[in-house]
Design a protein around this nucleic acid. Sequence first.
DNA 1: AACTTATCCAACCGCCGCTAC
DNA 2: AGTAGCGGCGGTTGGATAAGT
Length: 226
Amino acid sequence: MGGVAWTEEEDHQLKKCIEQYGEGKWHRVPVLAGLNRCRKSCRLRWLNYLRPNIKRGRFGEEEVDLIIKLHKILGNRWSLIAGRLPGRTANDVKNYWNCHLSKTLNAQDAEGGQMVKYVEVIRPKPQNIAATSTLREKTQESPSYLPPKEESSTSILMPYTEDGQGQIFLADDGSKNLCMDEQSIVGDLPMDFQIDAVKRMGNEEDCNKFDWDDFILDTDIWNDSL
DNA sequence: AACTTATCCAACCGCCGCTAC
DNA sequence: AGTAGCGGCGGTTGGATAAGT
């Protein structure tokens, strides 16, 4: 292993400590539990191994499908992906990806697998001007950048697929619709940037009301498009 | 049976963003 | 405004084990 393996006794001490004091305050855990481990080591051991309801064993077909879909949308955001797989940890998902999926899928891509690109989505003009300009500066780094069509609106980027299906338009009222406008293609951009952009968009009130991570992760949206 | 190579996965490391001071 | 401390995350490491020769 990469480090010193945990003993049964250490596991027991950690478990007892969490049961007594609850999760969190990890810097205090080594002292409270009487363990010669750092806060990070304790946290990791709890999250990846000792926490109740952790699922062990092989990944099911449905789980693997979901991992592939979510990885397409989110990239290496293992904790977000694991959040959609009950009982699985980010470490499990990451290990599974690295051992089983990355090689297989890279080979498929080399043979012309489907590729995700991105479209521009129009939202109402935000009140937070500073955030908007940051987004535009970043967006313009894309070689195929197209400026927003209307001054009264601004844009975010969402994935669509090579075959032209599944482009998402977010209407003023927050509803989600398909958008087939080819002009709206902005280019290939990393998902991290998109999420960053999405988080920066709109006034604070709007952002608080709308759960963007949940929107992006809402697999029902992508079932038809990916 | 003995040795080598490949695979798996628990644990560690370094970085990042947030918060309190 | 700067800094220290924290929780959290993703990348990487390396020991254990399985598979191959």
